[in-house]
Amino acid sequence: MNYTNDPAEFSLAEKDSALFTHRLEGAVSWGAIFAGGVSAAAFALILLTLGTGLGLTSISPWSSGASNAKAFGFAAVIWICVTSILTSGLGGYLAGRLRRRWLAVDVDEIHFRDTAHGFLSWAVATLFTAAILSSAVSGGVRTAAQSAATSAADSGSGMLVTMQRSNAMTALNTWPLGYFVDSLFRVPGGSQPAATPAATGNNEPSRQEAARIFLNSAATGDQLSADDTAYLGQLVAQRTGLTPEAAQTRVAATYTTYMQKITALDAAAKDAADKARKVTIGASLWLFISLLMGAFSATLMATHGGRARQL
C-alpha cells in the first residue's frame, strides 16, 4: 500500500482499508506523548544540573528554593530560556515522530494533531518535573523573597512580637533586649554598689522586672512612665552605685536607644521584604516567559516530527 498524504492517490480498496483503519485508531497517541514528556523532563534535569555546575543558575522553572532570587541574574535567565526551548523541543519532536501514522487525514488536520501532541508532551514534562522537584525540595522557599522577608522579620518586628508574648526570662535571652538590660545594670568603673542585701543577692529578679517594664511600654511604642523610670532608677542605683539622678538618666537613655534599635530593625525588615517582593516578581515573569517558549518549541518541533513520520 502506498502511504501518501494525498487522498486522491489512493485506490478505492486502499481508501476503504485506510478509512477502516482510521476508525479503529484514536487521534491521540498517548504513548508518544508520554515518551516525549518523560524524555523532555530527563533532559531538563540534565541541563539544569549542567547549568548549576557551570555556575549559571541554581533554579528551575518548576521549583523555588531559598537561593532562587539571588541566583536569578542575566546568565540564569538565558540558561533557563535555552533549557526550556531545547528540552521542550526534544519532547515535542519525539511525540510527533513516534505517534501513529494517520491515514486518509487531510494535511490541516494532521498539522493540528501534531501541534496538540507537542503541547501535550510539554504539559506532561512540566507536570512530571514539577512533581519530582516539589518532593525533592520539600516545598523550599517559596522564594528568596519569602526567605529574606522572614529572616528580616525574625530579627525585627517579628522578634519583638515573640518577646512580647513570652515571659521575661525568655525575653532576656533574646537580642537586643537582653543586651540593653545588661547595660542598664552595668557597674561603671570606680563605682561601688550599695552594700544592701538586695545589691549583694541575686540580680536576676531585677533584670526580669526591668525586662517586663521595657516590654510593657515597647508593646505600644510609648515612653516609660515617670513612675517606671523612677522605680528602675532606684534598682539601678542600688546595684551600680550611681546616684538616683544618674540612674534615672541611664534608664531613660537605655530605653530610648532600645526603641531606636527596634525601629531600625522594623525598617530593615520592611525594606528586605520589599526588595524580595520585587525579585520574586521579576523571577516569576521570566519563568513564565521561559515556559511559554517551551510550549511554542514543543508544538513547532512536533509538527516537524509528525511530517517526518508521515513520509
Rank of each mutant, 00 (worst) to 15 (best):
107 V>H: 08
117 H>F: 04
170 T>G: 03
188 P>Y: 01
153 A>D: 14
123 A>W: 08
175 W>F: 12
173 N>I: 12
175 W>C: 01
148 A>D: 12
188 P>I: 13
134 S>V: 10
110 I>K: 10
90 L>V: 06
176 P>M: 01
130 A>V: 02
162 T>G: 15
96 G>F: 08
102 W>Y: 06
186 R>T: 00
108 D>Q: 15
84 S>R: 11
177 L>R: 06
143 T>F: 11
89 G>K: 05
153 A>G: 15
174 T>V: 05
166 S>Y: 11
189 G>P: 15
80 I>W: 05
169 M>E: 12
94 L>A: 03
103 L>W: 00
91 G>F: 04
109 E>K: 14
115 T>A: 03
133 L>W: 01
186 R>V: 10
103 L>K: 12
82 V>C: 09
141 V>D: 07
99 R>L: 06
88 S>A: 11
148 A>H: 01
151 S>V: 06
159 M>N: 12
145 A>C: 11
171 A>L: 05
177 L>M: 12
76 A>L: 07
71 A>K: 02
151 S>P: 06
183 S>G: 02
154 D>Q: 11
82 V>L: 03
169 M>L: 13
167 N>E: 14
93 Y>W: 13
144 A>R: 06
121 S>I: 02
156 G>V: 02
117 H>V: 05
77 V>C: 09
74 F>M: 02
111 H>F: 03
159 M>S: 15
170 T>E: 03
173 N>H: 01
124 V>R: 05
123 A>S: 13
92 G>V: 00
70 K>W: 00
159 M>Y: 05
156 G>H: 12
167 N>I: 09
112 F>E: 10
119 F>T: 02
117 H>E: 02
83 T>G: 12
108 D>W: 14
68 N>W: 05
143 T>W: 07
72 F>L: 13
109 E>L: 15
145 A>G: 07
69 A>R: 05
111 H>M: 10
84 S>L: 02
152 A>K: 04
140 G>L: 14
164 Q>G: 05
175 W>K: 10
64 S>R: 09
164 Q>F: 01
82 V>H: 09
94 L>D: 04
103 L>G: 10
104 A>F: 14
179 Y>G: 07
158 G>A: 09
180 F>L: 01
105 V>K: 11
97 R>G: 01
99 R>Q: 07
136 A>G: 11
68 N>G: 12
115 T>Q: 09
132 I>W: 12
181 V>S: 06
182 D>K: 14
185 F>W: 14
144 A>I: 06
103 L>P: 06
75 A>R: 11
133 L>N: 07
126 T>F: 03
115 T>C: 04
72 F>I: 00
152 A>I: 00
86 L>V: 06
166 S>Q: 13
172 L>C: 08
139 G>Q: 12
112 F>Y: 09
67 S>N: 13
76 A>F: 11
131 A>Y: 05
117 H>R: 05
